[in-house]
Design a protein around this nucleic acid. Sequence first.
DNA 1: GTAGAATGCGAGCGAGTGCTCGTGTTTCAA
DNA 2: TTGAAACACGAGCACTCGCTCGCATTCTAC
Lengths: 199, 199
Amino acid sequence: MEKVVRRQARGERRMAELQDAAAAVFAEVGYEAATTNAIAARAGVSPGTLYQFYGNKEGIAQALADRYLEQLRSAHGALTPELAHLPLDELIDRMAGPMVAVNVANPGFKALFGRSDMPEQLAAPTRAVHAAVFGRIDAVLAARRPDLPDADRARTAQVTMRLFGGLIPMIVSADEDERPALVAELKKVLLGYLGPIVG
Amino acid sequence: MEKVVRRQARGERRMAELQDAAAAVFAEVGYEAATTNAIAARAGVSPGTLYQFYGNKEGIAQALADRYLEQLRSAHGALTPELAHLPLDELIDRMAGPMVAVNVANPGFKALFGRSDMPEQLAAPTRAVHAAVFGRIDAVLAARRPDLPDADRARTAQVTMRLFGGLIPMIVSADEDERPALVAELKKVLLGYLGPIVG
DNA sequence: GTAGAATGCGAGCGAGTGCTCGTGTTTCAA
DNA sequence: TTGAAACACGAGCACTCGCTCGCATTCTAC
């Protein structure tokens, strides 16, 4: 059922514009309250045009999530073995820094990531973001503490992800001059929690 | 414009039933996706009856939030001065224990509390819950560290509240046998973060 | 050039929302 | 006993949502 469509340059541009518009609307009203008509209008385009490129609301959110994870990956750098032997506070800088930077640069993404309620029937894009961040954290933990039982490591990774999810939206929507202090608090939280485990 | 209405016993019962129904629906689908018709149906009542008692959807959420905060207050106990000199891990037990217990007993409330995104234009009931929890934490911090500047204390209280908000939904929706381990993680997080500050 | 694909429009659909209102039933003070 | 107030119903109003579809325009391969 996959329809492969040859895109023109104009189409690619429109898709990027629609993603920008979706990010802006998500940032303002959240994922659920965002309407596809509002996204289309924001992009200066009719609703029909939006559906020319994305099958449904979830589709455009998924595209946005993909872009987000892409930025995270590249901002994050390779998962080199040296991470396993870095001092913990440096490791936290290396993990939290890019995370915060990408979220601040893309305020729409917190709407896809910072949803800690009702984990059962969450929209697929949110799930994908959670899974990717979880995997990232889990991999780092595994490199640092190969002896840790899988269940414990998974639990630690899940909790760490939730800590990000709880604090990042606050950081993103804070005033610029308050933000550094909040980022410092985030690092304190991570250091205090992870210290005894992977310190 | 406040209409004072003499309630009959039957009416009071209905209001409680409607709150129970709202809690159940909120727990299942979240606040935004919950419909007033679904809440009424869940209570075995017509939509019109719901609006006999609550002016709008936000009204019933507010009533639910009030009940929640009431339970929290009573489960929490008085804010005695002795809290200021308790060992930190005991203090954390005293704060986190009731919080977790009330949330587990009322799975609908996490929908009103665990919303960390878009703090600007949140619904009023959610704001009320956040403000109450924040005030509670802030008071305890003030008792423990009267010397801490207001801004620092407020920031710490806000971060602590967000930590609850990020982890509680996960705890509430976890399997019963996994829950104790997650509660232990919550306490580790709080201990690790608050230890250097109010230890 | 021209055919055919890609892009674009926007009124409007079906479904579902929060909420209303006319009407009937139950309760309870007088 | 009675009548006004409280309670209850449920069809349906006004509106918004995600999404569609018929048609016009623009691009590109040949």
